[in-house]
Write a protein that binds this DNA or RNA. Structure first.
Lengths: 190, 190
DNA sequence: GACAGCCATCCTACTGGTAGGTAGGTTGGC
DNA sequence: GCCAACCTACCTACCAGTAGGATGGCTGTC
């Protein structure tokens, strides 16, 4: 992968996380990277291309991060907290998860981008579900048997908590809300 | 309140719920309402004015709806389900809660708009918290004593679930995720 | 090794379209 | 007579995207 191409993607990713895909412009990327706007069009002819590549990259990078947590050591509740930490991290720079910002602008997206987004969410939920399976097996989580639904609910919560925390309450509120959700699943309290 | 002014607000609200405040334009409102763009500027000189009035109206209207549910009859879990129904309703037309879409575009907002948004979230969470208090008193909810944190977590979840459901899964996924969260708080399962 | 051709990269300069916003005029009810 | 409501016509700024030229490294050929 070309160096400039990567720089463009990095700058675009940061912008999208800050202001969303619609408010992000090639002009801003141009200023951030230090190449002309036309050069960005050379690498990503249409903005939709850029957003799609961004989504795909995010799909791989964060998929691996989540998998590393899921396949690592620790109890299921520990792993849920580690997954939440990934979202708390971005929040420190007032940035949202790529999937979150792009989903918020869903109705302005191309059909192809929506499909990639959908797949990304489905696979992320699939990875998260492994933790709930572990929680059921080791008895650390008191959740319903359909672990996919729990994983989907947890992922949805993380998206929303990031958005509301940025608008009101910050990282502290995000953490306490996360603790509320995870502890309600923990078996110890029963 | 003037008739045209209300029509403008209604059209703007629908557009914001569909595509967010940034992608919503005076041109689109003009087409929807049937008045010229300049006339919209007559009622709302700057776009930020419009967004702020929209937020304030949403604050009042939905505040009343939430209060009606909270002050009504039923157990705490019932009321949480009714609150979730309000969010499920908008989702049927691929529309998000105003607070959700506007929060997603937070970094492109004026400081004054952010303050209104923050207040709206805080007061909404305050209303939601009453349900958790009820749940503690009647013993129907097994939650930590800080009901504000639970209410904040629940509100955050609803925002996120609406966004992810629109992108992936639809109303059905929204409902099952909501059930996962509420039932994890219900005391009956312990 | 020298040279010719090629293509990716990046540039300047531009287009058409749309955004938010303004100036100033007309109308009609109080 | 006045003012709110609404209009036409316009402005500047910015957007995504394009045309076409310069550069420079890589490759095949002699």
């Amino acid at each position: 992968m070309n160096d400039t191409k990567t720089k463009i993607l990095d700058a675009a990713e940061e912008l999208v996380q800050q202001v969303g895909p619609n408010a992000m412009s090639y002009q801003q990327i141009s200023a951030a990277v230090g190449v002309r706007k036309a050069s960005i069009h050379h690498h990503f002819p249409k903005k939709e291309n850029l957003v799609e590549v961004l989504l795909s990259r995010c799909h791989v990078v964060y998929g691996d991060r989540y998998k590393a947590i899921v396949d690592g050591t620790g109890t299921a509740p520990d792993k849920l907290r580690k997954l939440a930490d990934v979202f708390a991290e971005g929040l420190r720079n007032e940035q949202l998860c790529l999937v979150g910002t792009i989903s918020a602008d869903l109705n302005t997206l191309q059909q192809s981008s929506r499909m990639i987004l959908k797949t990304t969410i489905q696979e992320t939920v699939g990875i998260f579900a492994v933790v709930f399976n572990q929680g059921l097996q080791e008895g650390s989580l008191a959740v319903a048997k359909c672990t996919e639904e729990n994983a989907y609910a947890f992922f949805s919560f993380l998206l929303g908590a990031q958005i509301s925390a940025r608008a009101c309450g910050g990282v502290q509120s995000f953490r306490s809300a996360t603790e509320v959700i995870i502890s309600s699943w923990e078996n110890s309290r029963c």
